[in-house]
């Protein structure tokens, strides 16, 4: 860091700044929230315009599976929060175990989602299918939104799972450790966001009857 003119700029965009990474992550989460926010506005308006159809359609969804997945995500949120505690305390092995649990839970969520979706598609409820096209006014909108919103959410779960896998690898190598854990923290923030969105999706689609 020597300069001929013998000074060092006090702040540099090229040096490590964990606080900046965290702020950046939060800002990114805001954009994610508003991305889903647009869909929630569509949901709100169409629910207002097609009240009865939305109620009827929501009976098609399986409350049991929805609740199960809600619990899965909540528990996974706790395990990743614990993983960060573990890293901060220097308990690397425990951190890895907790992260692996989180990853496993994300798979459980996706498998359940897969069965839910295939059942719906089997009934011809996917937009564009014959049965879907014959649905009464409003009900087709419900399923269009159901597939878009849970689909986009599932995509976020997949991305989150990949990020967690990276954190696992880096924690095992010791690259994430008690002095340097911004990556784990940010992965945690992202994972909690996925959880937050599900917390709203669940009642709006499964519990409105």
């Amino acid at each position: 860091m020597e300069h001929t003119s013998g000074f060092v700029l006090p702040n540099s965009g090229h040096s490590r700044d964990d606080e900046a990474s965290k702020l950046g992550m939060w800002l990114f989460l805001f954009t994610e929230l508003l991305l889903f926010g647009g869909l929630f506005i569509v949901y709100m308006v169409y629910r207002m315009l097609n009240h009865e159809s939305f109620l009827l359609s929501s009976f098609e969804l399986n409350v049991g599976l929805g609740s199960f997945n809600t619990v899965v995500l909540l528990v996974s949120s706790m395990t990743i929060a614990m993983a960060i505690t573990a890293v901060q305390k220097g308990e690397q092995q425990k951190a890895v175990r907790l992260l692996v649990t989180t990853l496993a839970l994300s798979f459980v969520f996706l498998v359940v989602k897969y069965f839910e979706w295939s059942a719906k598609i089997h009934h011809g409820l996917f937009p564009g299918m014959d049965y879907y096209n014959g649905l009464p006014k409003g009900e087709s909108l419900f399923f269009f939104l159901y597939f878009i919103m849970t689909g986009l959410h599932a995509l976020h779960i997949i991305i989150g799972a990949v990020i967690i896998a990276v954190v696992i690898a880096r924690t095992r190598k010791g690259l994430v450790n008690k002095d340097k854990y911004a990556l784990a923290e940010n992965a945690g923030l992202y994972w909690h966001l996925v959880d937050l969105i599900w917390i709203y999706l669940f009642p709006l689609f499964y519990l409105i009857h």
Binding site: Y46, Y132, N133, G138
Partner: peptide, 28 residues
């Protein structure tokens, strides 16, 4: 992000051939 998701909805409508903003199915 709001326009992002809106434009994606337009793309989805065109690709799936079903209208999310189509009044005949209750859209607006």
């Amino acid at each position: 992000p709001i326009v992002g998701i809106t434009l994606l909805m337009i793309a989805a409508e065109r690709l799936l051939g079903v209208g999310l903003f189509d009044p005949s199915i209750g859209g607006d």
